[in-house]
Design a protein around this nucleic acid. Structure first.
Lengths: 212, 212
DNA sequence: ATTAATTTAAAACACTCGTTTAAATTAAAC
DNA sequence: GTTTAATTTAAACGAGTGTTTTAAATTAAT
């Protein structure tokens, strides 16, 4: 059989789908390689270990999304008035949806991977993200904090993680929820519609005054 | 050694702690039985399989929490004025905290189990809960809808699932988030503090006016 | 006290897992 | 075209998994 120089890509493509659907530890290397139609050992040859494959899958998205999100938020800074919280969150929508042009279902897969990473791995993925993309996260947190100056930093920390949970869980079950919504209320939303629904919800929660 | 009729309880007690901390699939039966100081085979003798053990662990909490939550919400109905959304959500706090008297760290363990169950199992636990505790869920949804009559049913459907995502994700990673919060802001929150933090967030999101 | 039903115990079973090895193949370099 | 390096392949390794089996011990009933 002819050699394929795209073995790495085939592995990454198969792995990200399975990881997003089933989680990291529930996805075996044998399932990945059979779906990718490559040899089992090629994972360890190209990536070294399963853990490093997981990081590579995430990095392929983060390397695109994080800079795009950063510049989108910095663009808001050039406006004469302070951007509202909803404007800041909305600025992330385009970078998020652009992932769909990177790969099919890219937006959904990315958000699901993010959620899995936060819950499954015992901190090593969180460490990976904060050390590799810390400055991008900083600009986001600073922008959000500036738009809601009445929220103390510690409170904002919690609310931003509430927000992460909202978006991640919603995306993980978006397909199932869409089916129910279509059957029960006769409305069908695509990913973008769901994202635009969730933004007001998150913006209201993040900026609600702290109880004394 | 003398026979112990509390072998089932010893298994359940050890299992729920480990399941909450590490997740279901990351917790082996050997780890559970060694921590419970019982024989490995006794799990399959008393519960049949690991999957049934997981359900038994969850049912032990749900059987207590669900009726208590239902009656707490129905009690609000007796008041002369319509309960606010925050009042409805707050009514769940006491049934939740009462689980701490059932077992040590009961509240934390229950919520983490719920989160793990929703994320790890692909819908199996969702089915288990809705079929076994559906009427309790109904009273909750009806009470919330009545408290926010300006939200159309279809929009409320989405927002309640946003809310589910918020609480589930937060509880699944509560320990990790608490560690970060302690390191970064020097504040350490118990589970009640986190619950009281998340309620205003969710209440604001659910009741925010729908964009025209 | 004897029998019967539970409960515990130790070991093995039949997998699956990530990883490694060593040979075969392909691509690149000279 | 030969040599060298990079890549792919098949097979096995060792450790870990849930589950089952078989026998012993304990408890309950007769």
């Amino acid at each position: 059989m002819a050699s394929r120089s795209d073995t790495k890509t085939r592995i990454l493509d198969a792995a990200e789908k399975l990881f997003a659907e089933r989680g990291f530890s529930e996805t075996s290397l044998r399932l990945i390689t059979s779906k990718a139609e490559v040899n089992l050992a090629s994972v360890n040859y190209h990536f070294g270990s399963k853990k490093e494959l997981i990081r590579a899958v995430l990095a392929r998205y983060l390397d695109v999304f994080m800079p795009a999100a950063s510049t989108a938020i910095k663009r808001l800074h050039t406006a004469p008035t302070q951007a509202s919280l909803e404007e800041i969150l909305s600025a992330l929508v385009d970078p998020l949806l652009d992932l769909n042009e990177l790969r099919t279902e890219g937006t959904t897969i990315f958000l699901q991977l993010l959620g899995r990473g936060y819950i499954e791995s015992q901190g090593h993925l969180r460490w990976f993200i904060t050390t590799h993309y810390g400055q991008h996260l900083d600009t986001f947190v600073k922008a959000v904090s500036a738009s809601a100056p009445h929220i103390p930093p510690a409170e904002m920390f919690w609310r931003l993680h509430f927000t992460l949970g909202t978006i991640v869980f919603t995306m993980a079950s978006a397909d199932a929820l869409n089916d129910i919504a279509a059957a029960e209320f006769g409305e069908h939303n695509d990913i973008e519609a769901v994202i635009r629904k969730v933004i007001p919800y998150m913006a209201a929660g993040v900026s609600v005054p702290v109880a004394s």
